[in-house]
């Protein structure tokens, strides 16, 4: 009988000692965590994308809980639902967020612009750019090796015919692709703004014509056409001032190169309502942001 009792007793005793020690240490070394922080953290999507400017969701939650002067609307991936949640916890008015999206300012598809060299090496835009500014003949355009695709947590950007293409529905506007792009041709714009000049070339018109069939040549036709003083040619490149632009699309009509794009109006459903629930379900998806798994 004893040969059964002894091992059981030993395991029970050791387990008991461990339990007592753990409880004791747990109480003694308990780190007080602000409850507000935990609540806020639950509201945040947990993508740790850094769009808020903090090191991650935990960091932002801690900062919000500690300092009420920090804006509660910095989480772009979380969207409206997150901001409302945080504002409710902190007892401040929801300021609302502007849904943002990434936009690639280049139209240089494979068949519209020519490669200058046959590059066979590390498949990374940043690496290719080391070689004479990239393989394409246009030194401003999309390299198409997919550094943006690699960093995207939401599978919202892909390379299609050598050009990065953003899926507006999946994009949450966190800006990781814009930071990763060595050409700096991805900008983060409000989803409501629909007109864009899809070119980044600051070369003079003749040089642009030589390398690309669609690039902006800085002819200023759009500038003359615009009734709201919202588009200007700076350094041979038309630039839209998003605050003044009324999305009328007149500039796109006169553009001889057809490099100004007007996206179709979103569906008639009111945008925030259509966005709200969909965002929430997607973020609760366990397979959502890749980094959350890692």
């Amino acid at each position: 009988m004893l040969e059964f009792i002894i091992p059981v007793a030993v395991v029970v005793a050791v387990g008991f000692v461990c339990a007592v020690l753990l409880t004791f240490i747990g109480n003694k070394f308990a780190v007080p965590v602000d409850e507000t922080q935990i609540l806020i953290r639950d509201c945040l999507p947990g993508a740790n994308c850094g769009a808020c400017g903090f090191a991650g969701c935990d960091d932002y939650a801690a900062a919000l809980a500690a300092d009420r002067s920090i804006a509660a609307n910095k989480c772009i991936p979380g969207g409206e639902a997150t901001i409302k949640g945080i504002s409710a916890i902190l007892g401040v008015d929801a300021e609302g967020s502007v849904p943002m999206t990434a936009r690639v300012l280049c139209s240089g598809l494979c068949d519209l612009t020519k490669p200058e060299m046959d590059y066979q090496g590390l498949k990374s835009c940043a690496a290719v750019k080391q070689f004479f500014g990239g393989p394409g003949s246009c030194k401003y355009g999309c390299i198409g090796m997919g550094d943006c695709v690699a960093v995207c947590q939401y599978d919202a950007i892909e390379i299609c015919k050598g050009l990065a293409k953003v899926d507006k529905d999946s994009c949450v506007g966190c800006g990781m692709c814009a930071n990763a792009c060595p050409q700096n041709i991805i900008e983060i714009v409000p989803k409501a703004s629909r007109v864009s000049v899809a070119c980044s070339s600051k070369d003079a018109g003749k040089a642009v014509r030589a390398v690309c069939e669609v690039g902006c040549i800085g002819c200023k036709l759009c500038e003359k056409e615009c009734k709201f003083d919202a588009i200007h040619v700076v350094d041979n490149l038309a630039v839209i001032d998003a605050e003044k632009c009324k999305n009328c699309g007149l500039c796109a009509k006169v553009c001889p190169r057809k490099v100004i794009y007007v996206e179709p109006r979103p569906a008639k459903k009111p945008v925030p309502k259509a966005d709200g629930p969909r965002e929430v379900t997607r973020l609760e998806d366990p397979e959502g942001p890749k980094r959350a798994q890692a």
Binding site: V11, V14, G15, C18, A19, L21, L22, I25, G26, F29, A30, V31
Partner: peptide, 18 residues
């Protein structure tokens, strides 16, 4: 296994504080 698991847990709690 029992002891190692408890030990690691203790270290974590201790580390978090100190």
């Amino acid at each position: 296994i029992l002891v190692i698991a408890a030990l690691v847990q203790m270290i974590e709690v201790f580390m978090k504080k100190s």
